[in-house]
Amino acid sequence: MTAALRFESVTAGYGPITVLDEASLAMGPDEVLVVLGANGSGKSTVLKTAIGLTRLSAGRIMLGECDISVLSPHRRAEAGMGYVPQTRNVFADLSVNDNLRMGGFLHAAGLTRDMEQVFDLFPRLRERRRERAGDLSGGERRMLSIGLTLLLRPRMLLLDEPSSDLSPAMITAVFDAIRQIRVETRIPVLLVEQNLQAGLSLADRVCVMVRGRVALEQAAQELNREQLHALFLEGGVRLS
């Protein structure tokens, strides 16, 4: 079966700095692949490279049967890749409404109906639709960032640490929303997470990054906690 997204020996980074070092991974067409790793291991860079925000210096990125290595980010978005960054994930200067409109930039037809669906998923956003996105709380911002990505009508989601900086209650709400999206759409999700528990609650498979390389790629049920622990000795991961 063809993978939905595949990295083939990808070397990438920012400017003169190389972060990913011949990283290879594959995400199946109907699975949640959770990327784990210590700080600085390059897991966020996996997502940024997937959507085209880094400098790719070697290797290939395949979206289904297509090589998308040279496509610009907006072409990858057109191809159905929905990316939710960890920080700066909303248009802070724009209203919630305008944020969602820009989320649906590529699908202007039917935007009102799509926006209603987002408001159904995140009722809080409906109340605050006229406010500046920069004035929202952290949790509301995260909801908005996922909501405006859904308006892309993505065929896959790339989520960068959706739990970061959120209260436990808010983390539950956000992950419930992701679960609901999965139930409704069955699209594959590439999830980068620091919060192991939350991440593993969704994961079909897990891959662990160490210093820019994929050190382990395994089904979630087969995961050996001890082995994982060994890979994380550098710290920064909550194993509780």
Partner: peptide
């Protein structure tokens, strides 16, 4: 937010 805009298509 230029990066976010680009990744919205």
């Amino acid at each position: 937010n230029a990066d976010l805009a680009a990744t919205r298509g």
